[in-house]
Design a protein around this nucleic acid. Structure first.
Lengths: 341, 341
DNA sequence: AGTTATTATGCATTCGAATGCATAACAGGG
DNA sequence: CCCTGTTATGCATTCGAATGCATAATAACT
């Protein structure tokens, strides 16, 4: 007896419009497609009535019959969203410009992706941009279902999905080189989470290069990729060792934290006492208060490329898998003593 | 003749599963709902077959019949996304925890909202959280269609939508008061975009309060709410006037820009030469390199509240409209000389 | 075993738009 | 005015799952 006091008003359907306009439902339907032939007279007539009645096409019903939802899923971790809001905007904008919509699935971290993948197939989404790690069987799954898939900054060994990523490893090496050339000989690393592939690639390449240049073990701390952790863990480390020549941080947030730790907690001069290098070139890194030397990750370009790759694959489902490696640009600022200009 | 070489494989439907399991489609359907009675034996049997065949329910088809898409729209401007990525995450997370999905519509600015609104009714979304200005006829539109609507940081005069916003005006006044009490007598304002209501509310309240305290016209510049513009426009202003006692910035990005302008471009001591105050309390404001005095906007709490308001209204469509004003907290840091502790 | 109470299942319809095919309406030509 | 060629419209079906109602199957009692 206690039914909802306000019933959601019944939706106006194409049949309602058809009836009111004295035509068939098919004719109404055709009014909203450009390609079909329909006499201008009836079209105007129907459109007027439709407007008066407040009729709008139901995208869900259309999707059911056209087999396209026009929704593209994006899976992003909390970290990605917080650190690369530009990415979300760029992807959303590009998608919308191509007539698609953005179905955003946020996940705590790479491990909690399951539910989102399930949703992606249930809805069903026309394509997926994934900024997180994905279990191989799921990759397979999307492939067999014919859902185009693009990985963003996660390199995946597969021939059934595209992938665009910064070349973290090369950049990590590069940093090792320029620091070494500039005379630095003792180092520390502040990493992100242990299983963040991005952090891993950057730091390991850095360390390996230095090893091959004859540097011994490099003290390294894992953190959660945040400013606060960067600052705290660096102080931790410095409490138990001598000041190194340089600190390499797996991303800029950590870098900023380390910079502040040096300047405000330890009272060190940067770069005279120590060189600090970050990764990403987020906006704050470029401000004079920080002037963090870093590697630029052109996130907006990458986002746009990711979307076009996806759209291409949506057109042409059996394109060969592409693997785009974007080279990061070393941005020299005053937080590090570097060789060269 | 040139048809797509890879045809998207036909989706496995409940009929397919039914046939394979030797039951009817209805029975398959019922397997995926907890509430309906079905014998454990057949359920297991069907679920096993469904899994083997890779069957997943089609959310679109379900929505068509249940009249619920389980998708909630969020409309956010580029600025909101860039400046409050936390908001996106918090909203997305809260929605997902309640069994809904996030349909994100990004817009360039408040003026380009039209297309998104159209999409919101077409899809159709079960509810809408709008972080932008919306034309009154559209508000009406959603109301008549029975689509719950919550405004975030946009105060709208309406009885048909909820709204949660920071009390920008009171906070603006408060800042005027504390600066005045601390002896500041000459001021400048760096505003955001002219039609950003948030900027308007903050700055006008600040100015009005100072006027009523006997302060004359306050030099004010409109910008685009970014660090770069804050820095640039402040320098512009300082080129044509004497140093004021205090600068009030409509948000923290501007505040950081002004701070850097003072310290790095003008060589001023903050807060000795000038007090700088921002608004929002973004992460960077709290770092020692800036230590910007500001008003905290509890964005994550607000986001969660917005979602619960929406969910409540989705349950109970004719709740009275609520208007929640969140009080900002003044965060005293070292960028301003203030009275009191 | 017979009768009732209780599940468990199936049938048929519904949601709203798109579309292939058939046909009606109309225009143009002789 | 009739015939042909277009163009515009309608009919009927489809997409995939949910659900009220009817009924078959089973369980529970005498």
């Amino acid at each position: 007896m206690n039914e909802p006091s306000t019933i959601r008003p019944r939706r106006i359907t194409s049949y309602d419009v058809a009836r009111a306009a004295g035509v068939s439902q098919s004719t109404v339907s055709r009014c909203f497609k450009d390609d079909t032939k329909i006499s201008p007279k009836t079209r105007d007539h129907i459109l007027r009535i439709a407007r008066e009645m407040g009729y709008t096409r139901n995208a869900l019903a259309r999707s059911l019959i056209t087999q396209r939802s026009n929704m593209v899923g994006v899976i992003a971790t909390a970290f990605t969203i917080r650190n690369n809001p530009e990415l979300i905007y760029a992807v959303g904008d590009a998608l919308q410009n191509s007539g698609n919509s953005l179905f955003l699935m946020v996940i705590k971290d790479d491990d909690s992706i399951g539910a989102s993948l399930q949703k992606a197939v249930e809805y069903p989404l026309d394509g997926l941009i994934c900024c997180a790690q994905m279990p191989p069987d799921w990759i397979e799954q999307f492939a067999t279902r014919g859902v185009p898939l693009v990985f963003f900054n996660r390199v995946v060994e597969t021939t059934v999905a595209d992938c665009i990523a910064l070349d973290h490893a090369t950049a990590g090496q590069r940093i090792a080189d320029v620091l070494f050339e500039a005379g630095h000989r003792s180092f520390v690393c502040i990493r992100g989470p242990d299983r963040a592939p991005v952090s891993q690639l950057r730091v390991e390449a850095f360390q390996n290069r230095l090893h091959s240049l004859g540097i011994g073990t490099i003290p390294t701390l894992s953190t959660d990729f945040s400013y606060a952790e960067g600052r705290r863990s660096f102080l931790d480390l410095m409490a138990r060792m001598d000041r190194p020549d340089a600190a390499f941080c797996a991303n800029d947030q950590l870098g900023l934290g380390v910079l502040d730790a040096c300047r405000f907690d330890l009272g060190w001069q940067v770069p005279d006492d120590i060189s600090v290098i970050g990764f990403d070139d987020i906006a704050e890194a470029g401000r004079p208060s920080y002037a963090l030397t870093t590697v630029r990750q052109p996130i907006v370009d990458m986002a746009e490329t990711a979307v076009s790759m996806l759209l291409e694959r949506m057109e042409e489902p059996d394109l060969e898998a592409r693997r785009i490696m974007v080279q990061g640009e070393l941005i020299r600022r005053s937080s590090a003593r570097l060789a060269g200009t």
